[in-house]
Design a protein around this nucleic acid. Structure first.
Lengths: 225, 225
DNA sequence: CGATGAAGCGGAATGTGTTCCGGTTAAACA
DNA sequence: TGTTTAACCGGAACACATTCCGCTTCATCG
């Protein structure tokens, strides 16, 4: 099961809840004691527009960089109104997140159900290390978009992917150090990989990802002993 | 010596360089081999406006919260034009930073030249621990403003203060673990105290500051052994 | 004291993210 | 196939940060 971002702030309604790549929506509807999952297909025009918007956004990012990604431009290039963008993606950071999404899902399934050492089967320490390394690489890979997804709304990050990372790492830390505050430690280990900090260090200060990974490994090593 | 923020991006000119609380500007002017420090007083009308703006901004924050701090409102309340705000503070995050500034300076002088264990004189491990604890408290104290200063442009405004923290902690870590990558470790130890994460955990998740401090102490403890 | 120019000032103009709402349409159902 | 309705669409309107530029004022210096 891949964890997706939940509601954004207080603004976004349920339109995007549980949404997946194909644009279907999973609704939990209480029926007596049992909960039945009802799958509700996205309307065809909506699906068409979603595809057009994502294609247009990707083209604009490829062409002009993330900075040139304005909602009005994307809407114009996709041939839809801006209202449609907001209906689909909530806000600017939501659009960025959608652009990131495919990779994100691959990454999440890799550490949840992929082969060791990232996936299950390896020692917790090795898994945690592999996870942080892989996450660092993943962040760098789409750094611009990630900075934007995080910056547009300060809490956007904590609504979805972050929770998945946090839950996973907290589980590993709990195995490593049952007596410790695994939730807080997971936060602390994840924090150095925040997009803005990473972008600053790598781009402005010439620090390589490898050094960041090594420092994190150092921290993790201290934890296991 | 208190470290202040540097230039913002590419936009802000030299108007605010080397600025201090009283609004004076220190200019280094090369004269032959020697460099002479020339102190140039802020114009009286500018000083008056600065004070009016800061007072108005403080009142608005106290009244409506940080969210209600709009540039136009502050300008109107202070009885100046918005252009004046921008001339003085560069942008929204600059204004937030100015609001934070007094406390910030106290804090910095406390860990740079204050009494131990925060200031010089204590063991590096104890100082690092005390520093992280104190920083956590300080962040919580003005969390809203700090989130805003950080969010408007990541590292734009808070960069100066962050550099001070980073330099200090990196020095302590280097004493603690001479062979380690103290710069990266300092980043990693500072990152969990980033305002947005802290705000989220404390306000949305009910995590107390004490737990965050303890986790950080745990991490630090692992480092010293 | 009066000229001079650099610094400061204000507010209109601009750009862009976000919301709103009347009209449209796809899908379900009789 | 006709009816119904919830979802969707578009773009005008809005809010707000930021920029621009012509005018004003302070401080200096002859």
């Amino acid at each position: 099961m891949v964890v997706k971002r939940g509601d954004h702030d207080t603004k976004v309604d349920t339109a995007n809840r549980g949404e997946t790549d194909a644009g279907v929506e999973v609704v939990n509807r209480g029926v007596g004691d049992a909960e039945v999952e009802v799958v509700k297909r996205e309307r065809t025009d909506a699906a068409r527009n979603r595809a057009k918007i994502l294609a247009a956004a990707e083209a604009i990012v490829a062409d002009r960089g993330v900075g040139g990604l304005s909602m009005a431009d994307v809407a114009a290039a996709a041939g839809v109104g801006v209202g449609t963008l907001y209906r689909r993606f909530g806000d600017r950071s939501g659009l960025a997140y959608a652009l990131i999404d495919r990779r994100e899902r691959e990454f999440q399934s890799a550490f949840i159900e992929g082969p060791p050492p990232l996936g299950p089967g390896a020692e917790p320490a090795a898994r945690a290390r592999a996870f942080l390394d892989a996450l660092a690489d993943r962040m760098v890979e789409q750094l611009d978009l990630l900075v934007m997804a995080e910056t547009a709304g300060p809490f956007a990050r904590f609504g979805g992917a972050y929770d998945a990372y946090h839950g996973h790492l907290a589980m590993l830390v709990a195995q490593l150090r049952p007596e410790a505050d695994s939730a807080c430690l997971a936060d602390a280990l994840l924090a150095p990989l925040a997009a803005p900090l990473l972008a600053h260090r790598i781009r402005e200060c010439g620090v390589g990802v490898e050094r960041v990974k090594a420092a994190l490994g150092d921290l993790l090593g201290g934890l296991t002993r």
